[in-house]
Each structure stands twice: as structure tokens, then as C-alpha cells.
Nucleic acid binder design. Sequence first.
DNA 1: ACAAAATTCAAACGATCGTTTGAATTTATC
DNA 2: GATAAATTCAAACGATCGTTTGAATTTTGT
Lengths: 214, 214
Amino acid sequence: MEYNSKQIQIIEVAERLFAQKGFAGTSVRDIAQEADVNVSMISYYFGSKEKLIEALFQFRMTESRSRLETLVTNDELSPMQKINMLIDSVIDRLMGNQSFHNIMLRETLSSDRNETISQHIMGLKMRNIELMQRLIQEGQAAGVFREGIDMSLMSTTLYGTVNYAIATQDFYKKINNLESMGKEEFQIHLKRSLSQHLKSLFKSTVTNEHHIQN
Amino acid sequence: MEYNSKQIQIIEVAERLFAQKGFAGTSVRDIAQEADVNVSMISYYFGSKEKLIEALFQFRMTESRSRLETLVTNDELSPMQKINMLIDSVIDRLMGNQSFHNIMLRETLSSDRNETISQHIMGLKMRNIELMQRLIQEGQAAGVFREGIDMSLMSTTLYGTVNYAIATQDFYKKINNLESMGKEEFQIHLKRSLSQHLKSLFKSTVTNEHHIQN
DNA sequence: ACAAAATTCAAACGATCGTTTGAATTTATC
DNA sequence: GATAAATTCAAACGATCGTTTGAATTTTGT
């Protein structure tokens, strides 16, 4: 499925509003007004409000089908370098598509989920876990990573930390007295802090130096 | 403000439904039906749907005003023991009130927030950060914790990991082949795994052995 | 037991919801 | 430039939303 410029316009407005106010909290009239189109255009192009958010997911998911997969086959990088690149790529992806990942997290929090969306999210998570799995196993085979790493919890910490950092960025700004910082500048600062923080966390946990099994 | 049993009944049903379907996605008629009361009782007791969720926050916030504060003044525990107790207390609190913390996270994700609720969340986060701040500083004064720890990011990892683990627990169950496990049993398993994972993470990061400042 | 207060209820309020209609207009095709 | 197809629009559809009404009922205080 490919979308024309008008459809993309509607999708992008919907994405912003869904992130701000939630799916149920956003009316199709809100979307139509901000996208500067007639209300009926949403049904006309997408069929329904439900189909619109499904289109949003398809739109965002297919565009980011990662070039990251090649990472694991690159032999010039050390396992630790690959992990660090994975961390930066997750930070960049989530920070660069904050609205969409906000919506994705909201959907994850809902127990009566749209089936199509659930499958998109499930597929994405599977691919993420498998990629990390391969990177870790490679490091273990090389003898630089310890055994017995809980893959899914490491992944949970990575995505959980970045998601939560983005969700509470206003609070982070206030706490660290960064309110004078411009919007762009702050995003870069947050990225850098997150990157350093997570790399440090992962390095200590993943390498086998002095790690205690309790 | 204290609530009678009927009001508490409504609040608890509302909490469950808001967590399942979101605030905007839940109608007062949904709540009334599940709580087995007339629709008008919600306006009668709380004034409005908006005031109902505010009442929910006041109800849950005041009940958990932590006995944890005494932790920092307890001299019989080592700094690391206190950090570990803090971790377990966060896990217990979030796992034990999943619906409420689901709603709190949803509210955090919204940009047009209810003012009263925002202040509740802000106050809670402030108290949490300050408590962790004191524990870390104590460890630093004792010379067992390293300097230059990013407090707010450590807190972000703690709450981010636990929140995200709870949000994606179905996925965790599937990935780790724990689908045969009973509900209760799985909760205990997840708690234990999270506890071990986070304590290990924090220990490596917070102590000054072999830590590299990059 | 009686009056006052608190609670419960079915019904209705106006507003807004997602969606559809059908005519008007623009764009594409030959 | 005529015909067909695609798009745009104001208006209306029935359904559901949060809230209010006012009478009926139960509980409370004396």
C-alpha cells in the first residue's frame, strides 16, 4: 500500500494528535480540521478511524524496516561495538519518532487491542529480540560476554529506559536545570546522556569481569 | 477526603477500566454497569468523570505515602542494602498496583494533562528522586559508591524497566515459554527476575570498582 | 413513628461522536 | 472538449457521550 500526499498529510496529523490525546481522545473532526480537509475524507481514504490508525502503523513500520540487520554480519566490529551501535540506533529511532512510539506504547498499555496493530507490535518486538539475541551470542562465542544473560530483561531495560526518558523529558529538564536550553539542543543533550548511560549499564552487565551470579 | 464503600467500589472499577481502555475510551455507563450502580451516581458522588479520576489519584496517592522514608535513617543497613530495598519496594509498588500505574503512565504520555493529576505525579516523582538522591549520597560519603552518577537516569532506568516489563509481560511470558505458568506464579517469577536483574544492573553501575568514565 | 436527609432510579437533556449521503467540483483519459 | 473517474463539500444520520432532572425510595436522627 502506498499513500498519496493528502493521505500522508492526514496520517501525520493523526499521529501527532493520537500521541497528544490518545486514540479515543482524538475525534476525526479534530484530525480533519488540523489537516485542513473535510471530515468525510477520512472515511473516503481510509474507511474508518480504526483503519486510519492501522494505516499509520503500516506507514511507520514499513518505512523503518531496519538496515540494522546488516549489523550482525559486519565482521569489522567487536561485539561490544555492535551492542553500542544497537543502543544508539534504538535511541535514535525512538527519539526521532516520538509521536509514533508514544502511540505504540499506549497501544501496548491497552488490554483490548486492535488485532492488526498487536501483530505489528509483536512482529517488531520479535525482530528486536532476535537481533539482540544474535549480538549477545556472538559476544559469548568470542568469550567477551558472560553466560546467563537475561535477554528479554536487557531488552526491557533498553526500551523501557528510552521510552520512559522520552515520556518524562519535561521532568528531566526541570530536575537538571536545563530549562534555558533550546528544544533542539535539549534533544541532543538527552540523546547523548541516554547513550552514555545505557552503554555504561550494558558494558558492566554484559561483560564477564567481576560479575556475581546470585 | 474519605470515601464510603460505594464510592470506593466505583473508584476501583474505574481504575480497572481506565487501565484497560484509557480514560477517554471508558464511558461513565461502562463504569456504572460494572460497578452495579446507576449512571447518575458518578455525578452525584464525584461531580464529573474528570473529578472521578482525580479522586482515584488522591485515593491511591494518599494510601501509599511511603513508610519507605524511614529507610534512609536506618543505620543498620549498608548503602547497597538500602538501594536493593529501594529496588524491591519499587517493584512491589508497581506490580501490586498495576492498573493505577498503567493509568499514571498513560497520563504521563499525554501532553494536555489534567492539572491536578500532573501535580500529583510531579510530587511523587520529586519524592522518589530525592529519596534515591539521599541513598546515593550516603553511599558516596561512605566511599562505596562512585562519583558522577546520573541520578535522574538511574531513576529512569529503574521505573522505565519495571513499567515496561509490566506493560509487555504477555510478550515476556511467550518469549520465555512460561505460558503454562499460573497467573499468580508468573507474577512472582517476574518479580524475582526483575529484582535480580535490576540489583545486578545497579550494583555494577553504582559501585566504583573498575568503572570507566568516558 | 415521624420529619429530614441521603440515596437510587428511569428518563431525558444537548453535545459530540464516527460515518454516510448526494450533489458539486476538480482531475484524468481518450 | 466530451466523458468518466476521482475528489471535495455541507448536511444529515443514528448512536453514544457526560450530565441533569425530579420523583421514588431508603437511611438517618430524634
